[in-house]
Write a protein that binds this DNA or RNA. Structure first.
Lengths: 338, 338
DNA sequence: TTAATGAAGGCGAACGTTCGCGCGAACGGT
DNA sequence: ACCGTTCGCGCGAACGTTCGCCTTCATTAA
């Protein structure tokens, strides 16, 4: 048989199909007995509501759009984002929503892709990751009053919902840990200026040093595009410094960078964890297996997914959001590299 | 203003709304002039069709389900699958379809998740990756006559659509290349018996050796679960063999395994590429940057995505599929490790 | 007895499309 | 002038829901 509809169920239960609908949605005043009859018919016929019909009638959608920002030239996919999508999808499914993922090569997708999806009523809102400072997508979504939540902050002057992990706190923990290990000259290999999360992490680095009365030598900071190569280059450059200014510990802005750094340090004949300390950020699964295992900062990625979906669904349902920005605290994972 | 519907467009163009629909779907007999009027009204009002209404009426869906099989404990995500999803999503979008991704922790999702999604008319069909031999999902989908295509083969006795990369050919190329480099004792580090794609690759390994008159020593084959650790263990074990039986080249079943092998060989004081050859499979982006860069086999992943979507859409539209199984040929990428 | 109350469930309409049929006008041929 | 044909477009219906209102009937209180 083709599709089972409300009418089929109603016929079998001996009621009108609208009543069946009400029972299924718990907004019915019916006797216990008819309710049971209806549920039994539902089970016997294996009825499943038609999503399109429901969405059409309710002028809604049970889909959440997420642009999967794929970069084939990137050396390694971003496990943090993978974890984010996964937890967000899980959280959404718990509320009867699903993730519609669309893709874009190279840069982030153009705002009109979002607009199109929304105005066709295909999705009820969006989740954004890797936003940039003045992200045109955020601007458009805000303008058009389309529900969305970002993972990561953007332009501070815009008033929208975001969830982020406190990178400043994360790096402060890292550096405080290194200081506690006795290190006094601590390098930092990071992204170019202009990166917002880079700036937060750098602030944490400086803050920890300064609260200890130390001023970071400008030469201790090496910048470059996100890659393992940056880590290698950074270590080489830091090791070239004269002995009395040479860092004994190096904090890296990400695990990927730290992996490069690990390699370069080993190549330079240094035993990481003994003669030099190296740390990462993100705690990707790989770093448990590096030689030596890497000290890193774990992002509470499941919590991020839940909060993000929670806020988005509230927006979609038109509720007021009490706290538009949510900052979650990461966790320091100390391993043998420091 | 709220949503612009066909009626709004029709009012502005001075025609009935059904005519607008026909014009937009190119099934109208109308004068050039009214067609233009209608299109102009569409543009002026920025009309976008309502997906739910369309799907409801057409008894269809513009979504393709894909279960994103996430394994947090896995050391490294699978870049091949990422590439697959990306290319499939791209191909789908070119035909007005989108990917609905749902998730499952640990193992593959239960068949009833698929069934549910389909019977609610949420999706029109499915894409499956990492299928296993007697995959219960495949069995169910076949039983229920739900459109789907798999990336990778399953039980040979079932008659369904699949696209796969010829791993046997891939490993034959690898081993032939190694033979050509003068190697005569070639090891193979692979997955446990029972893995289907493992079996194909192993067949290629054997075939190449045998066509050269060599018989593989059983000790040259090391098996274990997919991990970098397997590579390390494999190399150690192979290097323990007496000198005259010790392989001078080692083919690994995947890049991940090869990365472990690379590390263990270096640790044993061997210069990879000179004193020993090591190869991988998949050509993940990372292996361009290993020390030394890894010889690998590149899967034609874009082609896979396109074929898969193509076959699925044909099924959805009820066309007959001429060739149910498609085997695509990979490419050998020779780098310094061999 | 009667009117008010409330519970149980039916009914009509609407959400925005697509699709087949039908109708009037124009047109060409006899 | 008449008839068949084609063109251009309108009309009604249907897809499967949800939602508010209405009807029916039994119960209760005055």
């Amino acid at each position: 048989m083709g599709h089972v509809t409300l009418k089929d169920v109603a016929a079998r239960a001996g009621v009108s199909y609208q009543t069946v609908s009400k029972v299924l949605n718990n907004r019915a005043q019916v006797t216990e007995e008819t309710r049971n009859r209806i549920w039994q018919a539902v089970r016997e016929l294996n009825y499943r509501p038609n999503v399109s019909a429901r969405n059409l009638r309710k002028q809604a959608s049970n889909l959440i759009g997420y642009a999967w920002h794929y970069m084939p030239d990137e050396f390694m996919q971003n496990p943090v984002l993978d974890g984010f999508v996964h937890s967000a999808a899980n959280a959404a499914e718990a509320h009867g929503f699903h993730l519609l993922t669309f893709v874009a090569d190279g840069g982030p997708p153009r705002p009109d892709v979002y607009h199109e999806l929304f105005s066709r009523n295909q999705v009820a809102g969006f989740l954004l990751a890797d936003t940039v400072g003045d992200d045109p997508r955020v601007e458009m979504l805000l303008d058009e009053d389309i529900p969305f939540v970002t993972f990561g902050r953007a332009n501070d002057e815009w008033d929208f919902c975001w969830v982020d992990v406190d990178g400043q706190y994360g790096l402060r923990m890292v550096v405080e840990h290194l200081l506690q290990q006795g290190h006094r000259r601590i390098g930092f290999i990071t992204w170019p200026e202009g990166s917002q999360s880079g700036a937060f992490r750098e602030a944490g680095y400086r803050q920890a040093l300064e609260s200890c009365g130390l001023e970071p030598d400008p030469q201790w900071i090496v910048r470059g595009e996100h890659s393992a190569e940056l880590g290698r280059r950074g270590v080489r450059r830091l090791l070239e410094l004269p002995r009395e200014r040479r860092p004994t510990a190096i904090a890296c802005v990400s695990d990927l960078v730290a992996i490069g750094a690990l390699g370069a340090a080993a190549q330079a004949g240094l035993e990481v964890g003994e003669e030099i300390a190296i740390t990462g950020f993100d705690d990707i699964p790989l770093v448990q297996y590096t030689q030596p295992p890497l000290t890193s900062v774990r992002q509470p990625i499941d919590a991020v997914g839940e909060r993000v979906v929670d806020m988005l669904l509230k927006q979609i349902q038109g509720e007021v959001i009490d706290r538009k920005g949510v900052l979650l605290q990461p966790e320091l994972i100390v391993r043998a590299s420091s």
